[in-house]
Nucleic acid binder design. Structure first.
Lengths: 348, 348
DNA sequence: AACATTAGGGCAATCGTTTGTCCAGATCAA
DNA sequence: TTGATCTGGACAAACGATTGCCCTAATGTT
């Protein structure tokens, strides 16, 4: 067992509180140089570290944050987590990671356990629209930041990107390449990114004067399998789309592999655009055109907003929205990979 | 602020200890049914959850584990973490995640902060040979399990795979395909996997009666960039290798892309074998032949060993070693991808 | 009637730190 | 010599929950 204040106090012959003040460098402490140096020597010798639990109980703060995401196996969330840790670690915080696999129940139970543990704040990236868990966090006044997805527009501190704009840019890119039958592998209507990206897709079509065909919008969700199935449905239509805008890269990867399997050439027979720019997007052949989402920066920024809340005691309720950027690769433009490949591959 | 025992006690008019006993279902408690039901009603109404910090202080356990890895952005470690969480979460434990980026200093400081926090146990996958941090954990009698890499052979509970055997099988595979100049992109000699895989590579050559050429072993480390550089060196030799066995998949990916860039055909001009079987390995074109390492199972098993230690108070010091399995893909055998691709792509 | 037992909880110590307050002796000024 | 001030720390009350022990009144036993 690690050494305690009382044990040290007994060895020096002073009161534990004196050791504590020396260890914490209490400026108001008046102490003889002799005693101080004896204590300091002992502190070094024993490598004394205050018991974080006792400290947490007294100070009402744990120096722990939590990150709740669908799945860390998804590179987007892994990068997000790294951002959080990189922001939190230098400030002395540890980070608890929880995966929900997209289940509201698991999210709820994780949050319950995290609040029982009294983490100082929570970063949530697995949120649904009008999410009861988020409302509960808000009501309990637990410092939190939503990332990537939000629950009730504007009510919580949020870090994300402009999903409508990103989807619009992606769709306009396809339109500009001459595509007129552009399909959308959509996210669930219960998730903000699903709704917003679909909205951006529709807005781009409307602005371009293309009449949207409801049959061209298929709900694929955010996983490869859904993207594959959706693509099979789309490609089996009598009036096939020539391009697909997918709600995220994994769905796009599903489209990608179905197209390959069916012997369609990308981008000539089918152009594909994804969303998020996960590392895999640059590795596919051809590379996947996608909307870049700076996941690592999300994590850093979310941590900043969270620590602001924690340290000020206020809820600044700031919303930070990044402007998305289209990354053009070979899945929409022939040859777009050539220039990128050597440099990109070497720098990673 | 969440409700405390004392507040509840005041509302019911009993002593806090009574509430505690009811909440914890103390079997030795004698209480009138009337009082009990009033208390239970209040517990439900207020959704009382004991303060985990106070509980931890009293009970000397935090119900928190920690996972220390080089980088969660690496799919191998992401899968490992999922295994840990999947094993720990149902037992009521939360998991703190720490990334070291391979720096012994960051590992040390994380470990210091984790022990100050009094996590109940640590799972370490970022260990070096003769690692001072590990020796310190051992000496402090902090429950821990090493995963994938070990520090001092046999002294700590460990979960991993037979690295010598895996490397041997990989090298034998290349030999069986007719390769005689087989190079090795090696890991650092400070890491057990680096040493063991190199040993397996050399053992396979020796058994096959091939004289090992020291020039064919280049230290690449575990990252793509190192693999790329190492491969450039190997391919610029007058007597080029026809095959490369890389210490892990990322290094192999580096080899892969350098070969492509130089216009070499894989596997005809250069065969490549990796290690770990990360998801990307199956996505490359051609697919990367590699040694499968069950990262998720590692995590589950490591958690089991750790919880055993924690709950028994003993150190069973069990070592669990999985037998590695070679996954043959197109980077060594032409056409090996064909049969796999459709099924593999669909099932994910 | 005297004593023992049981029912129903209350008391207080404890986990390890932090921090506002207090105190005894020494030193100082007048 | 008498206060006043200063020095160098000691004391104790939190922070919440847990748990061994104790206490009082009521009931039961002989």
């Amino acid at each position: 067992m690690p050494v305690t204040l009382k044990q040290l106090a007994d060895r020096v012959g002073v009161h534990p509180s004196t050791i504590s003040r020396v260890a914490n460098n209490d400026p108001g402490l008046r102490i003889s140089p002799a005693t101080r140096s004896r204590i300091e020597a002992l502190l070094r010798e024993t490598e004394y570290r205050p018991n974080g639990i006792a400290r947490g109980l007294k100070l009402q703060q744990t120096l722990a944050l939590a990150v709740v995401i669908p799945d860390v196996t998804n590179p987007l969330f892994a990068a997000l987590f790294r951002g959080v840790e990189d922001g939190a670690s230098p400030r002395g915080y540890n980070v608890v990671l929880c995966n929900t696999d997209g289940s509201p129940d698991r999210q709820r139970s994780h949050l319950a356990s995290l609040t029982a543990r009294r983490v100082d704040g929570v970063i949530l990236a697995s949120t649904f629209l009008r999410d009861p868990s988020v409302r509960w966090l808000r009501q309990q006044r637990i410092p939190h930041v939503l990332v990537n997805r939000f629950s009730d527009d504007g009510l919580d501190p949020f870090v994300g990107s402009d999903d409508v704009m990103g989807a619009k840019v992606a769709t306009q890119h396809l339109y500009a390449l001459g595509h007129r039958r552009i399909a959308h592998l959509a996210g669930q209507p219960t998730v903000s990114t699903g709704v917003l990206r679909r909205r951006g897709y529709l807005a781009a079509l409307a602005e371009a004067g293309v009449k949207a065909d409801p049959k061209l919008v298929v709900e694929s969700g955010y996983v490869e399998d859904g993207g594959a199935r959706g693509t099979e449905r789309l490609l089996s239509m009598r009036d096939r789309p020539t391009a697909i805008f997918a709600v995220n890269d994994m769905a796009a990867v599903g489209a990608h592999s179905v197209a390959r399997r069916l012997g369609l050439r990308i981008p000539d027979d089918l152009a594909v655009v994804g969303y998020n720019n996960i590392p895999l997007a640059g590795r596919l052949i051809p590379g996947l055109t996608t909307v870049h989402v700076p996941a690592h920066e999300f994590g850093i920024m979310a941590t900043r907003l969270l620590l602001e809340q924690i340290e000020s005691g206020q809820r600044p309720a700031r919303q930070v929205v990044f402007q998305p950027q289209l990354v053009v690769r070979g899945s929409t433009v022939v040859g777009a990979d050539v220039e990128l490949a050597p440099a990109a591959l070497m720098q990673e």
